[in-house]
Write a protein that binds this DNA or RNA. Structure first.
Length: 995
DNA sequence: GAGCACTGC
């Protein structure tokens, strides 16, 4: 009995046909023990096992993790007392920290347990039992008796479906056959063009590009080698010219019909604008020999004798239906020096592909700086360098800026309270300061000999000279405005905060009058991004000052910039492998970033760049940023590896030019296993197969599959699309509070950031239908361009669901798919079903700040933008989140309060423990409920799991009127989920001012 | 009490 319950109740979407033994190993062994450790042992580590913790820390000579302030002092005192053989318990009568904590932890656990109670009143329980009894004996689908099918039979059936599904995918092109007629007409067309006035004019301009001189060299190299690396700086014309050289050469040789070039770009805008530019150069319209394709938008070229500019992601999608790229003759991968996940991934795939496609030509295009490493990676393939053309840029460093502005940096070291010297931070700072002195000593002597003024030497001797200093930046801007010829100024800052601060300082200063200065912030989330002002030349006498993030480094180009101020800092998303935690922290820029920023000054005429770091610091900068693959979670990449059938994940990812940390791979594999996307042998499960095809992370994919089943598609598509794309809310300067309030209004008291998203999208769609979308965006601080994208993404996702046979309409708003779309509790439950295991528990409220706990962190906070900062009472302590990111502290960026019931249905490993005590446990949580409730939930869960199993392995849409079993099961669960105990917990229940 | 930048048939 026990065994069968465990088997039946394994996780959501479980892959039943995995052998029982294997299943146990996976769930009960690796994953559960990992989770259990995470939840239960964390407090213990900090409290119970005092001895081992302290022993270990003695070894490392650092205090145990989690100690703060005074606790660290006590720790060191106890350590030294113990070293001297003093018995702590008797020395002063005070208790050790380790003794005090277990009681508190226990109390905390107990308090929490009380709050995880599932109640179900008698009447409702009876009603649901009756609903189920009515359909007793019916199966979810005729002929499907899942337990009777053996493993191999199941796999056979599923694989049939898999092939069937893949067949529905259309390849990007038709197979290629030489078309002699076309060859001739292309040749003739090219000859005719050479008489065309527009073409000749364009040709003259093209001839001025540095790339023009290299045409013969490029064409020969490509003809003679399978892989060629072309290096060159921006402005050399390689992106627009190289594909044309290849195509024109083929046409001239009378083989135009045998040439199909795909050129990938990392950004959507560049794919489109480059294609437009190239079409213009060929005096054609888009769609003849040149076209583009990006997500949700394309202007395809003709089938043969053509160049297609597309984003890297599109090429990756092509690979799914055309794994050997049989339909392409040339692959040009541009901007590979940026080393984003997708381009590194494609480079690895293409390298594997070369022996299978000896006729495929690969052209890799990179900035000069690290072109060599790519050539090396491709077995020392030949390199061609194209010199760039930009106007000269004069470069200054911090020492020069201090000299020009006469600015003096003040030290703060002496003002710091003395006790900080004894904290861990203080000690680290001391070491850092010593290192700084060591580094700067010789350099400062060098500066002195060069005649730099004393105040510069003084300032630079302080480590504080390397901190962000807005006063210094303001002084520098002022210096430029007073003493330098006209021209726009571009300031690079790490983030929103600094932009906001500098913007305030500059606009409030009387020096920068509105009539003489145009100060514009530039940040992806500020509404200014769509304003034309940034690109327009200001009237004479007005100086344009743009305060930007690294968005102005590559994505947005402002031509009239003459002066660049580089703060030298950049915010980078990073991934801490040990803690399985994503971070977003400011860092020094890499040398490549600094060079790129510098280049932004010389686009129209000679420019000047001021780096706010010393020449000495510049020597310490890393050459390049760390490749994105080493800074990211890998779950989506791994699903791609699997769906493209590239073999085992670890050996494949080890082939990447700079391979990711194996622990990062392991973390992602474990998550995919918990989500039931991969089995323990790394095979795609039926669910994994569907998730890998959806253009979003697996958790969001799971969310929309559940939404189609529970018939609340439209709102959940809105949520999934915004979470996977961008937050549609703007962050205008100075309106922060108003935005928060507006969002809270939209939340309708539902305590969910996710419902804010679906409401915002829904109301905008409504307003937009009557032509009122613009005004709606304005009053609600929304970005209409992001909303437009979200709406189109929803349509695309619905198409995916249709192709996967989960829905029978491509309209997200189809009434049949939205029967439950007004049921907020259900929507939150479906969000929970997708985002699981991202669960946090509210543990206490301190000074109106909510403190939560996750599986791996003892303390996390709600991000201040969350609507859940407002309410004072919560009816449940459980929260589900999508993004957890460490910046100033570990923040949950988006949360929804959920009740225990959805977790019981959509979490993993529901088990009934100690039946006599009627406890239902799932993972780390224990939920108390009556025997009757427990039985009912267990029965429903069992039926839900087998319905899901069936749905996933046999995708089909159901007409609810003809399938009562499915309808009544879903409705029973909907009823349970949407009628929860609404007794609110007061914030005061969690008040706790100790610690 | 705070939000680098990209991308997906």
């Amino acid at each position: 009995m026990h065994k069968s319950i465990k088997f039946i109740l394994n996780g959501l979407f479980c892959q039943i046909l995995v052998s029982q033994r294997g299943f146990y190993r996976s769930r009960g062994g690796r994953n559960r023990s990992r989770n259990a450790r995470a939840w239960h042992d964390t407090p213990e580590m900090a409290s119970g096992s005092t001895e081992s913790t302290e022993d270990r820390s003695q070894f490392r000579n650092r205090p145990p993790r989690g100690l703060r302030g005074r606790e660290i002092g006590i720790h060191y005192r106890n350590l030294s007392l113990r070293k001297r053989g003093v018995d702590l318990a008797r020395s002063d009568g005070s208790r050790e920290r380790g003794e005090r904590w277990p009681n508190r932890r226990q109390a905390e656990e107990e308090q929490l347990r009380k709050k995880l109670t599932v109640t179900l009143d008698q009447r409702r329980a009876e009603r649901i039992s009756a609903m189920l009894a009515e359909t007793e004996g019916q199966t979810v689908a005729a002929g499907f008796k899942y337990h009777e099918i053996g493993e191999s039979e199941f796999k056979r059936r599923f694989l049939q479906n898999l092939e069937g599904n893949l067949k529905g995918r259309s390849p990007p092109f038709e197979p290629m056959v030489q078309d002699i007629e076309l060859d001739d007409s292309l040749k003739l067309d090219l000859k005719r063009k050479q008489m065309d006035f527009r073409y000749i004019k364009m040709k003259q301009d093209r001839a001025k590009l540095p790339a023009a001189d290299k045409r013969a060299e490029v064409v020969d190299a490509v003809r003679e080698n399978q892989v060629v690396v072309i290096s060159g700086e921006t402005g050399c014309g390689k992106t627009t010219q190289v594909p044309q050289f290849i195509l024109d050469d083929a046409i001239e040789r009378g083989q135009g019909s045998l040439c199909r070039i795909i050129c990938t770009q990392p950004r959507r805008i560049s794919a489109v604008s480059i294609a437009q530019r190239v079409a213009e150069e060929r005096s054609e319209k888009l769609g003849k020999s040149v076209g583009y394709q990006i997500r949700l938008e394309c202007a395809l070229p003709r089938q043969q004798g053509c160049i297609l500019y597309c984003t890297t992601g599109i090429l990756l999608q092509f690979l799914q239906s055309d794994p050997n790229l049989k339909l392409t003759t040339h692959i040009v991968i541009d901007e590979i020096h940026e080393q984003d996940i997708l381009s590194d991934f494609i480079l690895t795939i293409v390298k594997d592909l070369l022996p299978r496609r000896p006729d495929l030509k690969v052209i890799l295009m990179s900035a000069t700086l690290n072109a060599e490493s790519f050539s090396k990676y491709y077995h020392n393939c030949p390199m061609i360098h194209i010199p760039g053309f930009t106007h000269p840029v004069t470069v200054y460093h911090l020492e020069d800026v201090l000299k020009f502005t006469d600015f003096k940096i003040e030290g703060k070291a002496n003002k710091r309270p003395i006790w900080t010297n004894y904290t861990r931070d203080g000690k680290e700072r001391k070491v850092a300061n010593m290192k700084y002195e060591e580094m700067m000593g010789p350099f400062l002597r060098h500066l002195k000999s060069k005649g730099y003024p004393e105040h510069v030497i003084q300032s630079l001797s302080l480590p504080e000279s390397e901190e962000m200093n807005m006063e210094l930046i303001t002084a520098l801007i002022r210096y430029i405005c007073q003493s330098q010829p006209e021209g726009a100024i571009l300031v690079f800052l790490p983030g929103w905060d600094q932009i906001s601060k500098l913007h305030k300082m500059v606009t409030e200063s009387s020096f920068f009058s509105k009539s003489n200065f145009l100060v514009l912030p530039l940040h992806s989330q500020m509404p200014t991004i769509n304003q034309k002002e940034i690109f327009l030349r200001p009237p004479t006498g007005v100086r344009k000052i743009i305060i930007a993030t690294n968005i102005a480094e590559t994505s947005i180009t402002i031509d009239d910039v003459v002066y660049v101020i580089d703060s030298g800092k950049i915010k980078m998303k990073n991934y801490n492998v040990e803690d399985n935690l994503q971070t977003l922290l400011p860092e020094w820029v890499s040398f490549a970033n600094a060079k790129q920023r510098r280049g932004r000054a010389g686009r129209v005429r000679p420019g000047v760049c001021y780096h706010l770091f010393s020449q000495r610091r510049e020597m310490e900068l890393a050459n390049y940023p760390i490749p994105e693959m080493l800074r990211s979670r890998l779950d989506e990449v791994i699903l791609q590896v699997k769906i493209l059938q590239l073999g085992k994940v670890k050996p494949f990812l080890a082939k990447v030019m700079q391979p990711p940390n194996p622990i990062a791979v392991e973390n992602a594999l474990q998550l995919l296993n918990v989500l039931n996307a991969l089995d323990e042998d790394e095979n795609l499960t039926p669910l994994g197969f569907h998730l890998a095809q959806l253009p979003m992370d697996p958790q969001l994919g799971k969310m929309i599959l559940m939404a189609s089943l529970f018939r609340c598609l439209d709102p959940v598509l809105s949520i999934a699309a915004s979470l996977s794309f961008k937050d549609p809310f703007n962050l205008p300067l100075g309106c922060e509070k108003k935005v928060d309030k507006q969002k809270f209004e939209l939340s309708r008291g539902q305590k969910s950031d996710h419902l804010v998203l679906s409401e915002a999208v829904r109301l905008w769609e409504q307003a937009d239908a009557t032509g009122d979308g613009g005004r709606f965006c304005w009053t609600n601080f929304l970005s209409s361009s992001i909303l437009v994208m979200i709406r189109r993404m929803k349509g695309q996702l619905a198409e995916h669901l249709m192709r996967m046979k989960f829905v029978d309409s491509t309209d997200p708003k189809d009434p049949n798919l939205n029967i439950n779309s007004k049921n907020y509790a259900l929507i939150k439950a479906v969000v929970c079903a997708g985002l699981y295991p991202n669960i946090a528990v509210l543990t206490k409220v301190r000074r109106e700040k909510k403190v939560l706990r996750t599986a791996t962190e003892r303390r996390v906070a709600l991000h201040p933008k969350s609507v859940n900062n407002f309410p004072e009472t919560f009816e449940s302590v459980l929260f589900v989140y999508h993004l957890k990111l460490k910046s100033a502290m570990v923040y949950l960026h988006d949360t929804s309060m959920v009740f225990p019931m959805p977790l019981l249905f959509f979490g993993s490993s529901l088990r009934q423990l100690r039946q006599e005590q009627t406890l239902v446990t799932m993972d780390q949580f224990e939920f108390r409920c009556s025997q009757q409730t427990a039985d009912l939930i267990m029965e429903l869960r069992r039926r839900l799991d087998s319905l899901l199993e069936y749905k996933i392995t046999h995708p089909h849409t159901t007409d609810w009127n003809s399938n009562l079993a499915e309808k009544s099961l879903i409705q029973a669960i909907v009823e349970l989920i949407s009628t929860e105990d609404k007794t609110p917990y007061c914030v005061s229940d969690f008040e706790d001012d100790s610690d």
